[in-house]
């Protein structure tokens, strides 16, 4: 199986190709903000380097969330159009599960967390590939309480710059051994997305949307003001 994977969920853009269980291309452009401009050329570079065409790809995989809202849409729009037009599989992989895989060999609880500002994180905790705290939007204090209640002694954090939270995290997890992932282990990599995509079930491109894990502030404000329940997103869009 040939998998082309992409990650645009964080500030690091990456594309990977995995052929029959082997990673044959992986490239990351770190700390850049213009994924929409650089993604397609990077895909073309990967195809050129592996001698593949898009038509030869069996499965398009993407980090589907959480992450930067605009970034997620750049990756998913691209992946779902490719899958839809070429009639191939589309697979969405949890951004946090892919991040956690960076540290999976270390026999510890891995907490993958993306800084969502104001002491909030998009986070999930994994033992290997098993989610023990579901992907969600958590206040740091609540997240630490949940981790502290788990039996795991060793905890690794990955996915963000935790420098300014390090003291609060160590205090909240007193008694546990806390470390922070370094270098590329702290970055979302398309290679991990491709690896997880191998065994994941494909999703329908027409139904696929990013897993934002948060509605917009405007929607929460509207709900607070009107007391009304949200309808399905599709109920708000009409073909005319």
């Amino acid at each position: 199986m040939k998998i082309l994977s992409m990650s645009t969920a964080t500030s690091d853009l990456s594309v990977a190709i995995r052929q029959d269980g082997q990673l044959t291309f992986a490239k990351m452009e770190k700390n850049q903000r213009n994924h929409s401009v650089d993604l397609d050329p990077l895909i073309e570079e990967g195809l050129k380097e592996t001698g593949l065409t898009l038509k030869a790809i069996d499965r398009f995989a993407v980090a589907i969330g959480p992450g930067s809202y605009t970034g997620l849409r750049v990756g998913l729009t691209t992946a779902k159009m490719l899958a839809s037009i070429l009639g191939k599989d589309l697979v969405g992989v949890s951004t946090l599960k892919a991040l956690a895989l960076n540290c999976a060999g270390r026999n510890a609880l891995v907490v993958a967390a993306l800084d969502a500002r104001n002491q909030n994180f998009f986070a999930g905790a994994y033992r290997g590939q098993e989610a023990v705290i579901e992907d969600g939007h958590y206040a740091l204090g609540d997240l630490l309480d949940q981790i502290q209640a788990l039996p795991d002694q060793e905890v690794i954090f990955t996915g963000s710059d935790f420098t300014k939270y390090a003291d609060a995290i160590k205090e909240g997890l007193a008694g546990k051994q806390v470390t922070f992932a370094e270098g590329d282990d702290n970055l979302l990599q398309a290679g991990q997305v491709a690896l997880l995509a191998e065994k994941a079930a494909p999703i329908d491109p027409d139904q696929a949307v990013p897993n934002y894990l948060r509605r917009t502030q405007a929607e929460y404000d509207w709900q607070k003001k009107t007391g009304q329940a949200f309808e399905a997103d599709s109920a708000y869009v009409e073909e005319v």
Binding site: Y69, T70, R73, L76, T77, K80, M81, S84, I85, P205, D206, V209, P210, Y212, T216, A218, E219, D233, S234, Y236, V237, E239
Partner: peptide, 16 residues
Amino acid sequence: EVASRHHIEVITQITK
């Protein structure tokens, strides 16, 4: 942000 979210919901379907 709401507009962007709706756009991605329908894009493959309306292309077909």
